[in-house]
Amino acid sequence: MKSEPEYTPFELMAVAGARELKDGEIVAVGLGLPVVATFLAKRTHAPHITILFELGVVDPEPIHTGVGLADPRVWYRAKILSSFVDMLGMVLHRGLVDVGFLGGLETDAYGNLNTTLLGDPKGKFRHFVGSGGANDIASSARRTIIIIRHEARKLNEAVSFVTSPGYLRGYGERASAGLQGGPSRVITDKAVFGFDPESKRMRLESIHPGNTVEDVLANLSFQPIVPDAVSTTEPPTAEQVRLIREEIDPERVYAG
């Protein structure tokens, strides 16, 4: 009997993220799990992916884990070191980015993302990071993938501040705002979601091994669309886990 490899919820999220990427695509990433997912895809089924970081870094091959995009560890062995206008302008705004990988404080039933503030924007609130390139990526990438922890406070009916637009309030609202593309997947540590083609409301696609539909819904603050039959997310292979632990995130900073 084949023994199941052990993996952490973060490793499963990274693997589920990697699976969404196709060979040859141009991928814009922030830091954290999206980077692990993208490097994993590049080392397995999608060796011709182009990775870009907003500040002007293309296809780096880091050998040390960085603390953020501003850390030169993350730029090591890049093929291009340039600028915002070059990356977010002449590649992303030009329409050439296939996939944007985003995370945030909270997302909602229509895949809008908040990285700005929690609380009442007109009253008392706590301010966090803001957009950086996230709004630009959400506006101009052909599709975006959201990676976020599965917690009720992070998955709401509506976010308190739309930093990066998903489908806004659903149906044609995103298109009316003059935007194409939109989120294709939301990956949490319990499930993978897609979006209903008509209403653009989040729809359960698959549940990670060891979780139930009840688990998934109990830790959400809104009701997603739940199809009659929901599949189980394919678990990571032993080789994927080995790559993450030994080569991509050896210091276990992101995939803990």
Partner: peptide
Amino acid sequence: SSLSLAFRYLAGALGLPFIPIRSLRGSD
């Protein structure tokens, strides 16, 4: 956002009166 502000500097650098952008639409 990073790009919208970079575009404002770029418009300044080029001496343009304004610059169109796809970012920010629909957002808070």
